[in-house]
Structures are given as C-alpha cells and as structure tokens.
Design a protein around this nucleic acid. Sequence first.
DNA 1: GCCGGGGTCAAACAACTGTTTTAATCATAC
DNA 2: GTATGATTAAAACAGTTGTTTGACCCCGGC
Lengths: 227, 227
Amino acid sequence: MPELPATRERILDAAEHAFMAHRYEGASMRQITGEAGVNLAAVNYHFGNKESLLHAVLKRRLDGLNQERLRVLDELEAAAAGAPLKPSQIVDAFFGTLLRMGAEPGGDTFMRLLGRILTEPAEFISVVLAQEYADVLERFKQALFHALPDVPREEIVWRFHFMLGATSYAIAGTDALRLVTDWQTEAADDGTDRLLPRLMSFLLGGLRAPLPEPPAKPKQRSRRKTP
Amino acid sequence: MPELPATRERILDAAEHAFMAHRYEGASMRQITGEAGVNLAAVNYHFGNKESLLHAVLKRRLDGLNQERLRVLDELEAAAAGAPLKPSQIVDAFFGTLLRMGAEPGGDTFMRLLGRILTEPAEFISVVLAQEYADVLERFKQALFHALPDVPREEIVWRFHFMLGATSYAIAGTDALRLVTDWQTEAADDGTDRLLPRLMSFLLGGLRAPLPEPPAKPKQRSRRKTP
DNA sequence: GCCGGGGTCAAACAACTGTTTTAATCATAC
DNA sequence: GTATGATTAAAACAGTTGTTTGACCCCGGC
C-alpha cells in the first residue's frame, strides 16, 4: 500500500480533540485545521463537510469499541452455555469495555467526547449513533432480559438508560462537575483505574435495586403527596 | 408597582425554550427575540449580553428550586431532632424536589435545559452554577455523610456525582436517547410521574450499593489483564 | 519531453453571529 | 403645553461561520 495520507489522520485527531473541548457547534473548522497543521479546505476535500467529519471521528472509535463489546459478550455467552449470565458480567462487558478503552493512549479524549456528544440536540448525531449502536444495544438488552427474568423489561430499559447517563457524566463531566462538587482536595487525579470499580458498583446497585412500588394503584398506601 | 414589563419575561421564556432546544451556542439572539416577538436589541438592553441572559434564565428557576430544597431538608432535619436522616429522604429532598418541579407548568423545558447545560464546556456556566449550587450541595453532602457514617466520604461524593449524571440524562435525554434505545413501543409518553419512582429506586440502589473492593492492592487476586 | 490527477494552497464566497448605534416612540412629571 | 427618562425600532457594525473556487504543486505513466 502507498504511504497512508497523514493529513486525514491528523484531521481526525485534531477534530476529536476540538469536538471534545468545545463540542460540535463550538469547534470551528479553522480551529481544527489550525491544530492539525493542514489547510482549511483539506477537511472539506477529505470528508465533504463538518457533519461527515464528526461522523468519521465517531465511527473510527465506535466500530472497534462495539466489535469488542460484542466479542466479550459472545465469549461470555459461549462459556455460559445457555445459562443466563450474571448482571455484573453484562454490565462489565458493556460499560467496563468502554471505560477500559479510555485507558488506551488517546482513548480518554474520545471518551469525554462521547460523553458530551450524547446530549447534543443535533439530530444527525443521534441518527449516526442510533445506526452505530442499534445492534449492540439490542444484544445487551436481550442479555439483561435473560439475566433478570423477574424484572419487568420496561424497568430494565429504564435502568439501562440511567446507567448510560451515570456513565456519560462520569467520563464527560470530569472538569464540569469538579467545579460544582469542589472536590479539589479529594480524588482529583487518580485516573480511571479507580473510577471503574466505583462506577461499576454504583451501576450494579442501581440495576439490582428493589423495584419501585407500582405507581397507579394507590389502594395499598393512602399516602397523599402534599395536597 | 407599575405594570411589569412583559418583554423581559417573554425574552426569558423564549430564551429558556431556545437554550433547551439548541443549547447555548446553538441558540441565536435572532431566534430568541423572534420567538419572543420583541426587537433584536431588546435582550441587550434588558440583560446586557447573551451570557447574562443565560445567567438570568438559570437564576430565575434555580433560586426557587434551591430554596425549596433547603426548606425540605431543614424540615426533615428538624423532625429528626439530631438523628441521622434516611438516605432516601435526602435523595428525595434533592432529586425529588427537582423532578417535581418539572411537573409544574413550564417546568419541564427548564428541567431539560438544566440537564443539557450541565455538560456545557463554557466556563462561565460552570461558574454560575457553582455559585448557585455551592451552599445547597454542601448541605446535602453533609447530610449524606451523617446518614451513611460507615461509607467513606470520598465514595459518597462519587456516588452523588453518578446520581447527578443519571438524573440529568433521565430528564435531558428524553428524545436523544429515545432514538438510541428505540423504545417507541414501551414507556414513551407516561410523563414524569412514573419517572420519579423509577429513578429514585435506581439512585438509592446505587447509593447504597456494596462498596467496591479496595483497588490498589493486587496481592489478593493475581489476575493479569490480557498480557 | 508532456500529460493527468490526487493533493494542497491562499483567497474569496454568502450567510450568520453578538453587539452597538441612532432615531423614534412612549408614558409620565412638571 | 414641554421636558424627561425609559423603552422600542431599524439599521449598520465588525467579526466569524462553513463552504467553494481556481490556481498551484508534485509525482508516476507514457
């Protein structure tokens, strides 16, 4: 193969960093191309437009991440031989694989980018992520359904949603919420190796929490809320 | 008092909606003033600049919310007479009060705005929220410290962080993650009255989860990770 | 030699950004 | 009535945005 075009990768790296630092709309093409050391028109030449650039940035890492997630899940299910998995195994295969990717060189900036981009209101991002995530999310949902047969599926979907939110904040709001919670004295710079077990125990505790009382039947307890 | 200037409130309402829909940088002054039906220069006349407008939008609701949160906490602590509160009481006073504010007319758009704005990388927003949140967050942290005396304080701070993330996603990502998790069939439009008990049980489960094993001592298990 | 095309470059494009300016309008006080 | 201060109006401000243009370079094939 001929020498790989270095500018494409440099644009992707710079864009990943800029999108992480300033979000999609806040990161300008001139910032990205300036940081990459390439011409302004290079990104339009190689990627078409800004949207496709973000798509390429996400796809570059998400492909590998989701492949790895499915591989781990396949391995677990093969070892279980039909028996339902433990919830902790599934949660670790999904969220643990994500967080461990942050330990790789350069993976931390992408993790923070991912955490921030999930709340973007731009529609095309959601569409991209839906395409990227659809199959793997379905697989993990089914695995959780089998692992927790006595929990209503609707409840599992909700809790999966909550777990996504907690994880996203944990990796994205590293500096945003540091101001809010002002814990500069405690637990500031002890990397992600401590974050992983903390987050995992929180997620599992939430996932296996006792079910909320069925809401629409107020005949058991007649507790009225501030009438 | 003279007739309250209607344009100020209309600007605030329109800005709240626009900031919720397009975030801070994505919402333009012309969108806001156009939606409010006022002149473009009106916002600069009444608020100075765009940053101060966002500050006013947040302050208008956060003041009442935090006052209510502190009031509920005061009431609980007065009723307990020195005894530590139950964690569920504290969590409900903080997050339940927030979610119940979403049930008020117009409160839902602000809740979604709040959930999205917390991950903004712009510094001044974090500064504003730090000023706004500092005292109430400290009060609730202390309450949790007393309620969970055998849990390390560092761990409580982390889990408070996780709870913030899960809540933020639950209220902000109503449409963003609906695409990802494609649950259009299930639990789409049964308002926030069902969300509250679901989220509360998840948060409490995560808050009271068993502590993670102390991480920095790898002499117990010699499991090496993919050498 | 020359030709062709992938890649880079500076420059300009139209559209949009937040903000300011200046004039016009309004209600109220004298 | 006029004067006064607060609000609104249209227009222009300087700057940035993403994208496009057309010339330019370089390198392998003929």
